[in-house]
Structures are given as structure tokens and as C-alpha cells.
Simulated scan of single mutants.
Amino acid sequence: MKNKLLATLLFAFVAIAVNGQITLPPDGNKKATVSEYIGITEVKISYSRPAVNGREGKIWGQLVHYGFSDLGYGTSKAAPWRAGANENTTIEFSTDVTIEGKSLAKGKYGFFIAMGPEKATLIFSKFNTAWGSFYYDEKEDALRVDVPLENLEESVENLKITMTSLPI
């Protein structure tokens, strides 16, 4: 029975993939969710994966503004980057955590980044259901931390969030 169920599930997955039932959103930005346990805490990040599309060297400080900007839509006159494309990027913690030495309660947060040429400010907002950062309000910030930027050795076509082993 167990093998029959497994075979049925595998067949269903293959049938979906072969019949082309899996399509990208109209804007071409793939959606992703990554989750991992770090110690006893589950960390889950949901985001859209914009592509470079031949714009190498024109993303940071150009396509993605540095700091905060009036996006010309919504209520925010000083919006950070939404850390992805389309809807808010969200990050969820199953327990209370400490980030860069600062406490953050367990829960689900809108995740924004105020990019800069040397550092980035990571913003965890209590308002996690907004579309993008058009309605960002700093009064909803649960935590802000500054982190240095690191250059990658090679280009990545689509935004990819990964979790690396961290000391606990």
C-alpha cells in the first residue's frame, strides 16, 4: 500500500510537469519560499525572484534605489526596497530571535532593505501584508539593523535567498 501511494504521488507530479501545468507569473518573476531550522527556530522567507535580464552593474543604486525613495505611488514618501519583486518579501520566525545583537519577537514580518554602496539596513516590519513597499511606514518597524555588503564571486541571474550555517 505504501509503495502504491508513493508511486501514485510520483506519477501525479510527473503528469503535472509533463503536461506543462506549471507556468511562470506574467511578469516572469519566479516566486520562492525557503525555510530552515537554525537551532530550534524555523526561519521561513517568501519572496519573488527578479532577474538581472542583462542589467549587470545597473541594479544597485539605479534600478534598486539606495536608501529610501518616494516611489510615486501609495502612501510612503520614503520607501526602502521590498527585498524582491511584486508582493512584500516576508520573513517568519517560530521563536524569539536575536539579530545583530538586537531582540526580535517570534512572528511574521515584512522584510525590506535600504541598500547603500557600503552597507544595507535590514528592516523587519510588523506590516507584512502590503503589496511591495508602496505603503511602507517606519512606525511599523519592529527592528532595523545595519549589515556590511559582500560582493559575490560570480553573477546570479535571479535573486536567490539562501541560509548558511551560522554559529548558534
Rank of each mutant, 00 (worst) to 15 (best):
M1D: 11
K2V: 07
K2C: 04
N3V: 01
K4Q: 07
K4H: 08
L5W: 02
L6C: 02
L6Q: 05
L6K: 04
L6W: 02
T8C: 06
L9R: 11
L10S: 03
F11A: 14
F11M: 15
A12C: 13
V14M: 09
A15K: 01
A15T: 06
I16P: 08
I16V: 11
A17W: 02
L24F: 01
L24G: 11
P25T: 05
P26G: 14
D27C: 01
G28N: 15
G28M: 15
G28E: 14
N29I: 04
N29G: 01
K30N: 07
K31M: 06
A32Q: 14
T33N: 09
T33W: 00
V34T: 12
E36C: 10
Y37W: 11
Y37E: 15
Y37K: 08
I40H: 05
E42Y: 03
V43M: 10
K44F: 02
I45M: 10
Y47N: 04
S48T: 04
S48C: 14
R49S: 06
R49D: 15
A51Y: 08
V52A: 11
V52Y: 03
G54P: 07
R55T: 08
R55Q: 06
R55Y: 13
R55W: 12
E56A: 07
Q62M: 08
Q62K: 12
L63S: 03
V64E: 15
Y66K: 01
G67A: 04
F68Q: 01
S69K: 15
D70M: 07
D70R: 08
D70C: 11
G72D: 07
G72A: 04
Y73A: 12
Y73I: 15
Y73F: 15
A78R: 11
A79E: 00
A79V: 02
W81L: 05
G84W: 08
A85H: 01
A85T: 02
E87V: 09
E92F: 01
F93D: 14
T95D: 12
V97M: 07
V97I: 07
T98S: 05
T98H: 14
I99V: 01
I99D: 14
E100Q: 09
E100Y: 00
S103E: 15
A105L: 10
A105N: 09
K108Q: 14
G110W: 00
G110K: 04
F111T: 02
A114Q: 05
A114P: 04
G116V: 02
A120C: 03
L122N: 12
I123W: 05
F127Q: 10
N128W: 15
T129K: 13
A130I: 12
W131K: 04
G132F: 13
S133N: 14
D137W: 15
E138Y: 10
E138H: 00
K139G: 02
D141A: 02
D146Y: 01
V147A: 11
P148L: 06
L149C: 07
N151Y: 13
L152D: 11
E153Y: 08
E154H: 03
S155H: 06
N158T: 09
L159D: 12
L159P: 06
I161H: 06
M163N: 13
L166T: 03
P167A: 12
